[in-house]
């Protein structure tokens, strides 16, 4: 049965795989099971190879099985995702760009510039925080590397957070609702000062005064009260333990973290660093507590390295690698 599949596997490993294939068929006879037991007992290397392949499969699939086992509705979730074929058009586009074929100047410009940010109404660059007055007397403050569109036409009061983080201070006494739209849902002010922040997989919202109503794209509604914070994506809203005030510390140029993974600190510092900050997965899991300066992010990294077992290496002006020491 050993196939010429180009995989570097030795004969004993391949035999062990064949046994596993047989035992999983649902049709192994008693005699075949006995033969398997005899094979395993015949040579210590057989048993070792068996343990190795069983361990490889368990290690690979355990997280998937654990998650699927917690809810019958999740059956087939992993299978569906792994069989997803992707977007063919994009693959072709990528191939064209690679071959440098027939692209007009406009098309090239399109690819090379971050259009999402260039066409945004309000935006900030690396290390820049800025406050903007809005037509109705409200104001919005953008954290570094953020982009927001405003739509106050036809009596609307709407902001669209395209990237980064904002704090809206809403002028009271207006008939139109004040709404921040995101890719995953909307946050509606109930007479308020509140923060919305884009994260890798969703959005964080924190209420500094009064309350807001969150409605996700799939229609889940949740009210967040003063001092509270929450996380949401298209289908779900979860309460977040961080106090709202500490999430807004960036308005004063500070990053405040209360027992959170280093990954969260890195996310907070990135918009203030010209260099790309790469944190190893092991280091990213370290828990951090403290207040760090956003306006001097290199000093923040240095002080993290003093209190945690971290090594911070600078490679040229544009790459910083943080790893466990």
């Amino acid at each position: 049965m050993n196939e010429n599949d180009g995989l570097a596997l030795d004969d004993i490993t391949r035999d062990a795989i064949d046994w596993m294939v047989l035992l999983r068929s649902g049709e192994a006879s008693g005699a075949q099971r006995d033969a398997f037991a005899a094979w395993q007992a015949a040579d210590a290397r057989h048993a070792a190879a068996w343990r190795r392949i069983a361990g490889a499969l368990d290690g690979t699939f355990a997280p998937v099985q654990a998650i699927q086992s917690r809810g019958a509705e999740r059956d087939g979730l992993a299978r569906h995702i792994l069989l997803y074929r992707g977007d063919r058009r994009r693959i072709i586009r990528g191939a064209l760009a690679l071959a440098g074929l027939g692209l007009g100047a406009g098309a090239i410009l399109d690819r090379r510039l971050p259009l999402a940010q260039l066409t945004a109404d309000l935006r900030t660059s690396t290390g820049e925080r800025r406050s903007y007055a809005l037509p109705d007397g409200s104001s919005v403050m953008l954290n570094a590397r953020s982009a927001v569109d405003i739509d106050f036409s036809a009596g609307r009061r709407e902001l669209r957070l395209r990237s980064g983080e904002l704090i809206a201070t809403v002028a009271p006494g207006q008939p139109a609702p004040f709404v921040v739209r995101t890719a995953h849902g909307t946050v509606r002010a109930l007479g308020t000062r509140f923060l919305v922040r884009q994260q890798a997989e969703g959005f964080q919202v924190a209420v500094l005064e009064h309350a807001v109503a969150v409605e996700t794209r799939n229609g889940v509604r949740h009210r967040v009260g003063e001092g509270e914070s929450a996380w949401f994506d298209a289908g779900r809203v979860e309460a977040h333990p961080a106090p709202a005030e500490s999430l807004a510390a960036w308005t004063g140029g500070m990053l405040e973290v209360h027992d959170e993974p280093l990954a969260r600190v890195a996310d907070g510092l990135r918009p203030y660093l010209g260099a790309y900050l790469r944190v190893s997965p092991e280091a990213a899991r370290l828990r951090v507590l403290g207040v760090y300066s956003l306006d001097d992010p290199q000093a923040a990294l240095a002080s993290l390295a003093e209190t945690l077992p971290l090594r911070v290496q600078y490679y040229g002006p544009w790459l910083i690698v943080v790893d466990l020491r």
Binding site: E3, D5, D18, M20, V21, I53, A56
Partner: peptide
Amino acid sequence: RRYVTQGIARCVAATL
């Protein structure tokens, strides 16, 4: 049977 063999072999090779 052949596909399951392939799948297991690839997962094992990937963890070596």
